[in-house]
Design a protein around this nucleic acid. Structure first.
Lengths: 155, 155
DNA sequence: TCGGGGTTGAGAACCGTTATCAATCCCAAA
DNA sequence: TTTGGGATTGATAACGGTTCTCAACCCCGA
């Protein structure tokens, strides 16, 4: 989502929890058990998850709480909300907690997987984007690049 | 939306109408007055429009008909539905009727404007994307690149 | 001119999401 | 440890963008 701060090693495991804890604290929010389970569920998938996918991963979570906590985690900067083609929103951990990446969106089943671009390509892209934005009087704070097509399991 | 078929000159004015007419005919659909007005409204804006923006441009159109006809025009390949950040979908003429381009999405007011990238950048990007998609067993049929930031009028 | 299938448009229904609010939990002070 | 009180939870109602319904209308062909 955000322009790459190249080579910020991917925090993993409890590192992510620490980071999320800090982000929540900064906003006078607690890192409750439910929120921990939510973050854990998001770490599971290899791409952004819908609410239903989250509830499938952990059926001890309540739908309304998941919605509310995802909203809070997004405001705090720990989670990003993504809308693709279908009617469901998807959520994933913010790049500050993972790595800069893009999405493979399957136009058949709607599933979304992550992928990364070569750093060199990413750099030239970033340069071109900033130039284009400047001429349009637009202040960039990130870009979003998705690939549309058919995933392996839909062949 | 679709990978660039470089240098297909932008059909304009009645050319677009002719093209849309053909697309509709091929699906046994008529190009009625309402649909013509809809296509005209989409040509107005310099970016994808929401339903409300369309109704503002032409208040003789009925909301339910606009929704239905946009759906039909999308199935036929004349229009593309776009979802950005907010809760409103946006619609624009398909690239086959215009030109390959990308979107400047203002995270403040939600407005969306078009912009194009240098052909050279577009080409290297396309190459890198296809390579990435191949290794993921993904059949590409297009990409989507958006710039997120603040537009001029929101400074 | 007439017949009939496509199209229209006002309103109802749908469904993902958000707001509500009483019950519960958890931190901090005593 | 106990207790008070504000944050959090979760079942449910409300919301709103979009889709569906269906009678009235239009338009093309015979």
């Amino acid at each position: 989502m955000t322009a790459p701060t190249h080579e910020q090693e991917p925090a993993s495991g409890t590192d992510i929890d620490d980071e999320v804890l800090g982000l929540l604290r900064r906003a006078d929010q607690r890192y409750t058990t439910g929120r921990r389970k939510l973050v854990a569920a998001l770490q599971e998938g290899d791409g952004p998850l819908t609410i239903n996918q989250i509830l499938d991963v952990d059926d001890t979570l309540a739908q309304s709480s998941v919605y509310r906590n995802l909203m809070i985690l997004e405001q705090v900067g720990a989670v990003v909300r993504i809308v693709t083609r279908d009617e469901f929103a998807r959520y994933e951990l913010a790049e500050r907690l993972t790595e800069h990446h893009h999405h493979l969106i399957c136009t058949s089943c709607g599933d979304v997987a992550d992928f990364a671009l070569d750093d060199r390509v990413e750099a030239t892209l970033d340069r071109a984007l900033h130039k284009a934005a400047d001429t349009a009087g637009f202040a960039v704070d990130g870009h979003r690049l998705d690939l549309l097509g058919t995933c392996g399991s839909c062949d």
